[in-house]
Design a protein around this nucleic acid. Structure first.
Lengths: 157, 157
DNA sequence: TGTTATTGATTGATATGTAAAATAAATGGC
DNA sequence: GCCATTTATTTTACATATCAATCAATAACA
């Protein structure tokens, strides 16, 4: 069965794709969705959501407290959403808030030792999951896929 | 600048990717996210959400009333989420509920003339957006991208 | 200096996705 | 026909995303 046929069957659509462009977009969204489901499951097993993990990872990578604006700028999450995310991470003692800077409007967020420990328990499973998800593609295919995704994204932002 | 460098800069990460697999996954999620944002905006301009549009499109494609279970099976949305979606579409008179079948547990959902009209106003803008989003890739690249995305998704469920 | 504009963060409203449990109707075995 | 099970849907609870509005602190500037 052709590639086109496969996706068509998967979506249970009766009509053929009207364009190659439409097929690519659907394919992209559907694949990303399935990948995300796998990662979401892993995070949930560790009592985290993808957004929460992402913030912890950013804080660890930076190694110092970051204001909410800066966190928002590095995630999909809009600034108002950061507030609630930090609230829930703070309740779990994975991050802490500080108003220490000269600019007292800024709330600096720090990852706690417990937050760092939580991340460490996820490092290996995550690396393993990355391999599980796209490991069946050859290095050439992965490189090619990267190139095409980059090119697709180039005009988008 | 290399592809790896570009994404790295974009995410403001300080450390290089630990693997090609990780890079592909991040690339995939990020690209899908940006594409989705564009479509979400278009739908919002027409007072719809992506999920709402998706349900209308499915109903139009089928051409006859469908039970909630069937709608859920053709979307990302889990069954419980369908209820609220149909609620809001019904409030806008874009769909209607019927309990006409032999199995009176089933709620059949029909698209209304207003719903069909709403979809028609979206057909052209959507086709145009598909081209805008990935139209700068050559047909060869689109075909290649489709193949790689299909292959990536093959092991995912 | 004092008024205004901007910025960082929060809150509130609406929509969605997910999981668990509840409700109601249909089905199968006896 | 009765009862346990299954099925279709809804309800409830929680996390998130988006947008608008608000509040406090700072910056800009006449």
């Amino acid at each position: 069965m052709s590639d086109r046929g496969k996706l068509q069957q998967e979506l249970k659509k009766k009509t053929p794709f009207t364009s190659l462009e439409q097929e690519v977009v659907l394919n992209l969204m559907r694949t990303a969705d399935k990948v995300q489901i796998r990662f979401t499951r892993l995070f949930r097993d560790h009592d985290l959501t993808p957004s929460q993990y992402n913030i912890l990872r950013i804080l660890r990578g930076e190694g110092k407290p970051l204001p909410c604006m800066e966190i928002a700028s590095r995630t999909i999450t809009e600034v108002p959403g950061i507030t609630g995310l930090i609230d829930r991470l703070e309740q779990k003692d994975l991050v802490a808030r500080q108003r220490d800077g000269q600019d007292r409007r800024e709330v600096h967020v720090t990852i706690t030792p417990a937050g760092l420990a939580k991340l460490e328990t996820l490092d290996q499973p995550l690396e393993e999951l990355h391999r599980q998800v796209v490991g069946h593609l050859s290095p050439d295919e992965l490189t090619q896929l990267n190139r095409l995704l980059e090119k697709a994204r180039a005009t988008l932002g």
